[in-house]
């Protein structure tokens, strides 16, 4: 980069007259490019602002270059679609879903990007079902879910290729996928905590106690949201879990009970979550 800058004005001097700096910037559209970038930056507030800008400008550049290349012929459609998909996924990764307003914002950006895709085959009123399912699949595989669990979730959420997906469904589905990944990550941590000497599988009795607590927490389904959250978090608080585990320990005195491996625990935990995901159809 720096060398490039140093290499002097070897390039043929184009018809750049004594043009003032402002005129030049204005003509080249630099002002609007920078304004757009800054707005995006402030909107997304990424953790790594410089990486964000690098990615943003790279996206923009490859977009203008591809538009300049072939004028939106149908052959370019797939490449363009893939590009839009990558951009959409990138936006979804910018903020953690617990930063709810930022995350919702990014979902909106992703939704707009995808609904502009494939103008020839465009469905009015939303993102194509095909793109929607494809994107959810990418979100799931990005976050390190096991294939089986991801497949079940996608089966619940997917819709037909020809359908148009409205924003609210899109948002809910993305949120479900990211929450599910987070939930599975937490479940793995739980298992690791239960399987105390980490080289042996955890005791089945203890795992069952933890899974039970988890089920009860997920079953708090009455009352307004805020109080449900409080109730649920009280039910899986560390003390509550410790109490449940201590009880099991007290009931069965023998030290070496049957074990449960990580995979089985994860599947059971995933099952609890998946049973509560509403099927789209």
């Amino acid at each position: 980069m720096a060398e490039k800058r140093r290499s002097g004005s070897a390039a043929e001097p184009k018809a750049v007259k004594a043009e003032s700096d402002e005129e030049f910037l204005c003509q080249a559209g630099v002002g609007s490019q920078l304004r757009a970038a800054l707005l995006k930056l402030v909107e997304a507030r990424p953790e790594d602002p410089i990486g964000f800008l690098a990615e943003h400008f790279t996206n923009e550049a490859s977009e203008t270059e591809s538009v300049g290349g072939g004028d939106a012929g149908d052959g370019d459609g797939d490449a363009l679609e893939e590009q839009q998909m990558n951009k959409a996924l990138w936006h979804l990764r910018l903020a953690h879903h617990s930063q709810r307003s930022a995350f919702n914002n990014n979902i909106r950006v992703a939704y707009d990007l995808l609904s502009r895709c494939g103008s020839a085959r465009r469905v009015p009123g939303g993102v194509q079902g095909r793109l929607y399912t494809e994107m959810l699949r990418c979100v799931c595989s990005d976050s390190g879910l096991l294939d089986a669990a991801a497949a079940t979730l996608l089966h619940h959420l997917q819709c037909h290729d020809y359908e148009a997906v409205p924003f609210e469904l899109f948002r809910q589905a993305v949120l479900t996928c990211t929450s599910f990944s987070e939930y599975i990550r937490r479940a793995r941590c739980l298992y690791a905590a239960v399987a105390c000497p980490s080289d042996r599988p955890a005791e089945r009795g203890l795992c069952d106690a933890v899974l039970n607590a988890l089920r009860e927490a997920l079953d708090t389904s009455h009352g307004p949201d805020a109080s449900r959250y409080l109730e649920a978090s009280a039910k899986i608080s560390p003390t509550e879990l410790a109490r449940a585990m201590a009880e099991t320990r007290g009931a069965s005195r023998e030290r070496e009970g049957p074990g449960m491996d990580m995979r089985e625990f994860e599947d059971a935990a995933a099952g609890l979550f998946l049973a509560r995901v509403r099927v789209v159809h």
Binding site: R5, A54, A61
Partner: peptide
């Protein structure tokens, strides 16, 4: 932007969008 103005002939050929992309990638 300062760099861009100093070497504008070069970067016009290079593509201004691409220039910003390269700049921030190197940062």
């Amino acid at each position: 932007v300062t760099q861009l103005l100093e070497h504008r002939e070069e970067f016009i050929q290079f593509g201004i969008g691409r220039y910003f992309a390269e700049y921030f990638t190197s940062v």
